[in-house]
């Protein structure tokens, strides 16, 4: 019905057309007049932080924080990287993020494979329970997790931090991969079975390669989540030298009272660069990752 009406509509249109186009053009003008300032407003905070980060300490103390740059100086970055320990912290972040992402996707893909391709009793309940675990407020886990990692001897170690990231993220990744694996037709795996492929081979040689797109989306998302984490790092780690970058940034505040703004602005930019790279490299995956579990 609706389609019919649409089909009938065009013949009626020509007489009105000039007016309509003019109105459209005017609306286009209004659209940009509203959106351009709004977008600039959105970008402005980032821009101003960059402008502060590249000013020299003297410039800041002489002319105030809000003045436009009169100098170009990477002293803030140098201090943040060196004395501030941000370089070391970035390395730590990588040391945590890479194994945590790989391990959680690997374990999640195994669970998703089992739950989506085999008639395991209660598989839906298991899946939803795992997803529920990821939705819990971390606060309810903090104290016991600190205790448990202490009793396992991995408190204040990066191993402990990786472990909790893997455990906490698993449910969500499993849920997403399960949805994808279910959509792979059974004929493909049946054919492999007839050709004598075992369970492990079907997982490794057939299902995993087919899952590459959703694995990429999840990897992009998981990387930013784990890299950006703060609460688990400050819960599981005590030694400040072992802090990943987000936690290390918050510790900058003590040391640089006079130049705090410049050093922190520079440090924050450095901490944001890796996730920004992931975002731009995987932009399409990233957005589809955000949408996961939201709509259909």
């Amino acid at each position: 019905m609706a389609a019919q009406i649409v089909l009938e509509a065009p013949p009626k249109e020509p007489p009105v057309r000039p007016v309509k186009i003019a109105r459209k053009r005017r609306r286009g003008w209004v659209f940009h007049a509203v959106m351009t300032p709004l977008t600039l407003l959105w970008v402005a905070p980032m821009l101003f932080v960059v402008l502060i980060a590249v000013r020299s300490f003297d410039d800041i103390s002489a002319r105030g924080l809000a003045a436009l740059p009169d100098s170009f100086d990477l002293g803030g970055f140098v201090t943040a990287v060196g004395d501030g320990g941000i370089a070391l912290a970035l390395v730590t972040s990588a040391e945590v993020t890479v194994p945590a992402v790989v391990l959680s996707l690997w374990l999640a893909s195994m669970a998703a494979f089992a739950l989506s391709r085999y008639r395991i009793p209660g598989r839906r309940a298991i899946l939803l329970t795992m997803l529920a675990g990821n939705l819990l407020p971390p606060q309810i886990l903090l104290i016991p997790v600190a205790r448990i990692s202490e009793s396992l001897g991995i408190y204040d170690s990066l191993v402990g931090l990786v472990a909790i990231h893997v455990g906490f993220g698993l449910g969500f990744y499993t849920f997403v991969l399960h949805g994808f694996m279910r959509s792979i037709p059974t004929e493909i795996t049946d054919a492999a079975k007839i050709d004598g492929a075992g369970t492990v081979q079907i997982y490794a040689r057939i299902i995993m390669p087919l899952c590459r797109p959703s694995l990429a989306a999840l990897a992009a998302l998981a990387t930013t989540w784990i890299f950006n984490d703060l609460i688990w790092s400050i819960t599981v780690l005590r030694t400040q030298a072992k802090f990943p970058v987000t936690a290390a940034l918050l510790n900058l505040q003590g040391g640089y009272v006079s130049n705090w703004n410049v050093v922190v602005a520079a440090g924050s930019i450095l901490a944001a660069i890796p996730t920004a790279i992931v975002f731009f490299a995987f932009q399409r995956h990233f957005v589809s990752g955000l949408l996961v579990g939201s709509t259909k």
Partner: peptide, 11 residues
Amino acid sequence: MVFSLAVTGLF
């Protein structure tokens, strides 16, 4: 969105 909440806070 790509910035962590902590970095956003510091900005």
